[in-house]
Design a protein around this nucleic acid. Sequence first.
DNA 1: AAAAAATTCAACCGCTTATTT
DNA 2: AAAATAAGCGGTTGAATTTTT
Length: 282
Amino acid sequence: MEAAQFGWGREEGGWRKGPWTAQEDKLLLDYVRQQGEGRWNSVAKLTGLKRSGKSCRLRWVNYLRPDLKRGKITPQEESVILELHALWGNRWSTIARSLPGRTDNEIKNYWRTHFKKGKPSKNIERARARFLKQRREMQQNQLLLLQGQQDHHQQQQPDRDHDDGGSGREAAPPAVSPATAQQQHEEELQTMLQQDIDDLLFQFCPMAASCTSSSCLLPGASASASASEDGSSGDHHQLDDGGATWGWGSLWNLDDVVDDVHGSACWDTSFPLLQDQGLAFY
DNA sequence: AAAAAATTCAACCGCTTATTT
DNA sequence: AAAATAAGCGGTTGAATTTTT
């Protein structure tokens, strides 16, 4: 296709623009092999390539780098993107650091095409379902763990209700049998866990939270997305408008975010997937 | 089968931050 | 310390491709 006729692949101020040709790629690759990454402005001088340093860097970072992972974003990667975007907003390069072989540009494009506000789609529903499934599994694991701990505790420390023998106080008759009580307790536990998880989900990723209203599904219904977009919005930590606005206020200073989250106990339970995958912040 | 609409993604731009002179 | 240069970042654009009508 002759891109030039559209002004694509044009020249401007001596620099070529538009899609790169195979020859240009080769020149740039040769340059990096010999000189290493960086000093992009000298590419033109040394190789004769008519591309600005900026363009060369971009081409290398987003396309030619050998460590780039080609192919589609996997469901696991997608979940990581969801979780990290919930945490960091549009800090694409930061998110990309947790996804080896993926570029910020790629992640940004992926987010925009799959999860951008105002674009409810099958994709978003699938991602949401996957996200929730993972949460359910986590919840069940926690429940099992808690049950195990509780059983252990009961074995070691028999029910005290039975040995307050004759204190004079009228012992209330058990309203339910022990088996039913246990069941009830489990249900309560489960409800509490579900609540916790929903709260966390909603707090960190309202889009993915198990809320069916459109305003919850799409946090950007108003200012939310843009609030996170420039990271300079007001100082609102709390979700006081039903989730339409969500942000970390001053925490949007990345260093603060990292320090804060690293130091916080809720990281473990909030983003298990990242931990499961051994993914680090940096 | 063809046209229209939707989606994808490479590359651009402007701005900010970091480094060098 | 200040200016210049380089690198990095996020938003946006638009050609190419895919899907839908």
